[in-house]
Nucleic acid binder design. Structure first.
Lengths: 329, 329
DNA sequence: CTGTTAGCGCGTTCAC
DNA sequence: GTGAACGCGCTAACAG
């Protein structure tokens, strides 16, 4: 009982009748439809989705790609990515799409074209531009069914959904200054445009005298990497009274490293993170952070992609981040 | 330039020659092979994977299913799941498989059979048995290509890879007792067999006089849920001097709630978690925890599944957890 | 070494 | 209302 033909034989009808009965399409006598369906149930038969899709010229799947351009390790265990992935899975499932997950190490310049042309999915969602803007643009010129999570840039040929990272950086700057902090530091990765924007917004908002002395500390985005960077930073005798960490994970690492050096948060030092992932709430102390609407972003990504698939013309969307005050500042 | 036939026409050869040139299979003149390949490159042509797979009687994808039986919210943002998923993505990619991600709310009894019979994947990996043991067994009786992450039970018809949770619970009990703690509590969910086993191992190892007074605190596995449970527990005046939390996320919530009640970890109370996810290392204080080998587990899951696909007979594997001492105990 | 042909499992026009 | 035939894009015999 592998194919529609087997069931047709058993039911004593033609394959097209079985097809009509099981898909519900076309016109068919209600009784034969019921009979065929009952027979299918009894034999545990279901239409083969792959063949169905081949015939319909679609795949029924959307690819979710995580380019690991600037960071090689463990991207997926980053709470931001996994939260985004969870919401994408829900949204896509709701629209009847499968989610094809692919972590890609962009060693080959053509990784995106390769993926697209292999025809495995009807469309793709790229989470994070990483340092792959050029590749994304190249593909976008000949391929429409793509949406990217990340900062909007009018020069890009592709559609994005993402937070206003510059505004996020501004929020962080205003908050630390309002707390009376003056010796500040920024912990972040600068290879990715999102992080560069957070830094830019942060710096441009600070008063000149404060900005002049800001420490810029480049870190890896992994817990280990950021912890080590923070340990080295404090170990060198640096004692800022306010830190803007470009992600909540970095912020948590900073708390840990600070504690090792006898620096109490928020008493000696105010700390503000970015993302507002779930663990930010259960950190000790709970993190003040710049909130990104991950669920809303996921919904928008899927929505925009589906509308592109339907031939609509859609534009990029920028989400406004907001301050969430907890106890680390 | 959609199909192999178009390219064949341009190259002035037959479709099978193009197929042989591009797949590398079969025997072909080196020069024509090169010529066809160059032409394909020039036109940006790639074989359609879906059609290829249909012809080969495979899909080239493995389904990774997350049954959300006992917990509805945000399973994927649980660091354990996302770490597992990341490793599975790597392992499957290495073997040339796509990863089809599916979160499923098992409202229908037949969700697993439905998925299997839709023929979307060549095999499936189920992460966590949740409370779906009966469904898994039913499917396993007629479907071989399935491997499950979770506790082994000889009564099951399906193959599992999972940690020895009883042993993990024993480790936690011995550790807290060795620290001189006597008023103990267990925070965990008991609907899933994994958690029930951790509790059982924990209780059975404690001396009688300690076990008699252990508090069993049922919690949800989300950060919010576990935080609230811990707040209520401490708010009711409970003051244990040692806690075994069934996951690191629960443990972190406990630290936060304890701090709110003036309880310092580890001074007033020793705390031990479970999983050893990355955030355990950057928690404040860093968590003592029972380590599960997630990367090794993922590798085994994929390995066992591939061997089943190849027709081999393979058996379940149980991984031995181990204590990782940090500063929360 | 290369071309012809017959499907993989299904949907959909056409007849009847 | 139902069946026969064709094709989605590809691979694998079988010929030549």
């Amino acid at each position: 009982m592998r194919s529609i033909a087997d069931l047709a034989r058993i039911a004593g009808v033609s394959v097209s009748t079985v097809s009509r009965a099981l898909t519900g399409k076309g016109t068919l006598n209600e009784k034969t439809r019921e009979r065929v369906r009952a027979l299918a149930d009894a034999h545990g038969f279901r239409l083969n989705v792959a063949a169905q899709n081949l015939r319909l010229g679609r795949t029924g799947a959307i690819g979710v790609l995580l380019p690991l351009g600037h960071e090689r390790c463990q991207h997926l265990s980053d709470p931001f990515f996994s939260a985004m992935l969870g919401h994408l899975a829900d949204e896509l499932a709701e629209r009847g799409y499968d989610l094809l997950l692919s972590r890609v190490l962009p060693k080959r310049k053509d990784w995106l074209d390769d993926f697209v042309r292999s025809g495995r999915t009807d469309g793709i969602i790229v989470i994070g531009q990483s340092d792959q803007g050029a590749t994304l643009n190249r593909t976008a010129r000949s391929y429409r069914n793509m949406v990217v999570w990340g900062a909007h840039d009018p020069a890009n040929a592709y559609i994005t959904v993402g937070s206003d990272n510059v505004a996020g950086g501004q929020i962080a700057a205003r908050h630390l200054v309002a707390r009376g902090r003056r010796r500040l530091a920024y912990f972040g990765n600068i290879a990715a445009p999102e992080f560069a924007a957070r830094e830019a917004g942060f710096l441009e908002t600070l008063p000149d005298d404060i900005r002049r002395d800001v420490d810029i500390v480049p870190v890896h985005l992994t817990p280990e990497g950021s912890y080590e960077a923070a340990m080295a930073y404090f170990g060198a005798g640096n004692r800022p009274d306010g830190i803007f960490a470009a992600s909540d994970i970095i912020a948590m690492s900073v708390i840990g490293a600070a504690a090792e050096h006898g620096i109490a948060v928020p008493r000696d030092m105010s700390l503000i993170g970015f993302d507002d992932v779930l663990v930010a709430r259960i950190a000790t102390p709970p993190l003040t952070t710049v909130h990104q609407d991950i669920a809303g972003g996921a919904r928008l990504l899927v929505d925009l992609l589906c509308r592109r698939l339907a031939g609509e013309h859609v534009a990029s969307v920028t989400l406004t981040p907001r301050l969430v005050e907890r106890e680390s500042s």
